[in-house]
Amino acid sequence: MKVHVNGQEQEVDAQTLAAALSALDYGEAKVATALNGEFVPARLREATPVRDGDRIEILAPRQGG
């Protein structure tokens, strides 16, 4: 199915957000996730289904003022 990952359309074969992160090669990276604009805590990623057309945001620490 096709999902939007950080604004880019990508083909992902995954049923859950946790599986999508793994399939997208984020591994054990320190990231925070949101699905369709809503924060999804790490502990809920396994139980969060991902559907065709979903928007996934994957954020990590970055420089800030």
Binding site: N6, D25, V31, I58, A60, P61, Q63, G65
Partner: peptide
């Protein structure tokens, strides 16, 4: 130190390097 959150590329993983530095 102030920091932010930004989109992380699975390929570059820049945020992980930054976090180690901090």
């Amino acid at each position: 130190l102030t920091v932010s959150l930004r989109r992380e590329s699975a390929r570059l993983k820049e945020g992980q390097d930054f976090w180690r530095l901090i």
